[in-house]
Amino acid sequence: NRLGIIYEIQGMKAVVLTSEGEFLIIRRRKDMKVGQQVSFENEDIYNV
């Protein structure tokens, strides 16, 4: 599992900021809110 803070939500995608200072786009889940810490898997990351 990886951890990140939700920075922005766009439709079915969420932008998270990881503890390494990396911004990633992941698959959104219904319970996500901006500012929330979430765990996610590598499979949830969109390749940009």
Results as ranks from 00 to 15, higher is better:
I6V: 12
V38C: 08
Q10P: 01
E22A: 09
V15G: 05
L24F: 09
D31T: 13
V38S: 04
M12V: 13
G11H: 10
Q37Y: 07
E43H: 03
I6Q: 00
N47A: 08
S39K: 12
Y46L: 15
V34Q: 07
E8S: 08
A14V: 08
Q10Y: 12
Q37V: 13
G4I: 02
N47L: 07
G21F: 04
I45S: 04
V16S: 00
L3W: 12
V15S: 10
E43K: 11
F23S: 06
R28T: 15
M32V: 06
M32P: 01
Y46K: 11
Q10N: 08
D44T: 02
L17A: 05
D44V: 01
D44G: 01
E41P: 08
L24E: 06
V15N: 05
N1V: 13
V16G: 01
G11K: 06
V16E: 00
V48Q: 14
K13G: 06
V34D: 02
K13D: 06
Q36R: 10
K33C: 09
N1L: 15
R28M: 15
E22Y: 11
I6H: 00
D31N: 05
E41Q: 10
I9L: 07
V34C: 14
M32L: 08
Q37G: 07
K33I: 04
N47H: 13
E43F: 02
M32C: 04
V15M: 13
R29W: 06
K13S: 11
E22S: 07
R28L: 15
E8D: 10
K30P: 15
Y7K: 14
V38M: 04
E22D: 11
D44F: 05
Q37A: 11
G35A: 04
G4N: 02
F23Y: 09
F40W: 12
V34I: 10
Y46I: 14
Q10L: 06
E8V: 13
Q37M: 13
G4E: 01
Q10S: 15
E20S: 12
Y46T: 10
R28F: 15
D44I: 03
I6S: 00
A14Y: 11
R27E: 13
T18Y: 02
R29C: 12
F40S: 02
F23P: 02
F23A: 04
D31V: 04
E41L: 12
I9P: 00
L3N: 12
N47R: 03
Q10A: 07
R29K: 14
N47K: 03
R27T: 14
Q36L: 08
G21V: 01
Y7G: 02
E20A: 09
